[in-house]
Amino acid sequence: MHPMVYAARTGLRRGLIEFRQTYSTATDLFGQIFWPLAMGVVLFFMRGDTFDGVPLVTLVLPSVMGMSIVFTGVLGTSGVLCVEREDGTLLRARTTPYGMVGYLVGKTTMVTYWIVVGVLILLVPGMFLVDDLDLGVGSWLTLLWVVLLGAVATLPLGAVIGSLLPNPRSQGLVTLPLAGLIAISGIFYPLAALPAWLQTVGQVFPVYWLGLGVRSALLPDEAAAVEVTGSWRHLETIGVLGAWAVAGLVLAPIVLRRMARREAGSAMAARRDAALRRA
């Protein structure tokens, strides 16, 4: 077996093990389920609101699921890279033959599991809050390709950001722009209700398209009437998310290689000393 193939297989096993470890401690478990549970509470209190005759909770539930994919893919990946660059895990991976291959496959596997669990945590209780979800075979297939394409579009972006951030405490530099994108991406209110120029800006980024893709999977065709063009636009969804995926997959290896070359024991010791001084 080629060493790179072996490293990739090891990374897959490592990703599954680390995913299980995430749910073995109370702190990590709380961090994983708090946001989906909080969104469930928000959806509960939105039950009486409507937009153009469509219950707002019907539109918001799939949108929040799409937003969860973006948040987990970008913030989850960037956060893990920042932490493990600071504690030396990344340095140890770099000094092992094909260690970076196994490391990146493992992290990608772990975060992908996080994405799937986050979607399910929102979907299962949402089935009891929303009466008109379409959960046929076609809906599950559409949801599957949207989730997978969303993961491919966001995970490399998170890796790039994690490589550029100086330390884990800089995550706020990512969270605030993402929160701004949510406001103009039709997550909590249909994009068609926003000014035209904001609609244009929102459609550049993957947040809107992931929300649209999940809505197309779970809602009946009549609900598309409140969208910008009155349709689900599957081809455009694939095109935009695919473009982000290609850009991330091209850029991420370049940035990660440069970041890995800069890793050394002295740099790690300097970051550790700086963290101790801040503590």
Results as ranks from 00 to 15, higher is better:
187 I>V: 15
188 F>W: 12
188 F>R: 03
188 F>D: 10
188 F>H: 07
189 Y>H: 04
190 P>Q: 09
191 L>W: 06
191 L>G: 05
192 A>H: 11
192 A>V: 13
192 A>R: 14
193 A>Q: 06
194 L>F: 15
194 L>K: 08
196 A>Y: 13
197 W>C: 01
199 Q>E: 15
199 Q>N: 14
199 Q>M: 13
200 T>I: 09
201 V>Q: 04
202 G>F: 06
203 Q>Y: 01
203 Q>N: 01
204 V>D: 00
205 F>I: 04
205 F>V: 07
206 P>G: 12
208 Y>I: 03
208 Y>H: 14
208 Y>N: 11
209 W>E: 09
209 W>P: 02
211 G>C: 03
211 G>D: 08
211 G>P: 04
212 L>T: 00
216 S>M: 13
217 A>P: 09
217 A>K: 09
217 A>M: 09
217 A>Y: 09
218 L>E: 04
219 L>C: 06
220 P>Q: 06
220 P>T: 14
221 D>V: 08
222 E>K: 02
222 E>I: 00
223 A>H: 08
223 A>R: 05
223 A>E: 04
224 A>G: 12
224 A>P: 03
226 V>T: 12
226 V>W: 08
226 V>M: 07
226 V>E: 11
226 V>S: 09
228 V>T: 14
229 T>F: 04
230 G>E: 08
231 S>N: 08
231 S>H: 10
231 S>M: 05
232 W>L: 13
233 R>Y: 04
234 H>A: 15
234 H>T: 07
235 L>G: 03
235 L>C: 00
235 L>E: 05
237 T>Y: 06
238 I>F: 09
